[in-house]
Simulated scan of single mutants.
Amino acid sequence: MENLHEVIALKQASLDLRPQGHPDRSMSLNNLALCLSTRYKQLEIMQDLDATIVLAREAFLPRPQGHPDRSTPPDTLARYLCDRFRSTRQLEDQEELFSSYAQAFELREQ
């Protein structure tokens, strides 16, 4: 577990080096979100899942048409929202996760 805490600190430092507008910021946001999600699944610290969702929302940038990962951000956000909905049963999370899955599907079709 100590290694995961260290990785999270390094991912946060990496994100701090990529301000708004940096071409790799979305990747850093996603990497940190994945690590926090992993820690949430191991320790069930709700703040980790909440932070994961905030990061995933920020990473929810449209990618150009034809990009192979065009639908990944909304699909990933939906999975995190689904995790939180399972824990909290907040209808807002359920509504947003359905919307995110729908957006991911639309982006795959384009």
Rank of each mutant, 00 (worst) to 15 (best):
47 Q>P: 05
15 L>M: 11
4 L>R: 05
31 N>A: 05
47 Q>S: 15
11 K>F: 03
36 L>V: 02
44 E>C: 14
46 M>D: 06
4 L>Q: 05
17 L>R: 14
43 L>Q: 12
30 N>C: 10
27 M>R: 15
13 A>H: 04
16 D>Y: 00
9 A>S: 14
25 R>P: 07
43 L>T: 09
45 I>T: 10
42 Q>W: 01
34 L>S: 14
6 E>D: 13
40 Y>W: 03
30 N>F: 02
37 S>R: 00
4 L>S: 04
16 D>T: 12
4 L>M: 12
50 D>W: 07
41 K>Y: 07
8 I>H: 01
41 K>P: 03
13 A>F: 03
26 S>E: 06
10 L>A: 13
4 L>Y: 01
47 Q>Y: 04
42 Q>N: 12
14 S>E: 06
21 G>A: 11
11 K>G: 04
8 I>D: 02
10 L>E: 09
32 L>R: 08
40 Y>N: 05
13 A>W: 01
25 R>A: 02
17 L>A: 14
31 N>S: 12
33 A>V: 01
29 L>D: 00
31 N>P: 06
36 L>G: 05
45 I>D: 15
28 S>G: 15
17 L>V: 10
14 S>H: 11
9 A>T: 08
21 G>V: 09
29 L>V: 03
39 R>P: 04
9 A>R: 15
18 R>E: 08
28 S>A: 15
34 L>I: 09
36 L>Q: 05
49 L>K: 07
5 H>F: 10
47 Q>E: 11
28 S>L: 10
33 A>I: 03
17 L>I: 09
37 S>V: 05
22 H>W: 00
40 Y>C: 05
27 M>A: 15
31 N>Y: 06
44 E>K: 15
45 I>W: 07
19 P>M: 06
9 A>G: 13
47 Q>M: 11
26 S>M: 13
24 D>E: 14
47 Q>F: 02
22 H>V: 02
49 L>F: 01
24 D>M: 07
16 D>K: 13
50 D>L: 04
22 H>D: 08
5 H>S: 14
35 C>H: 05
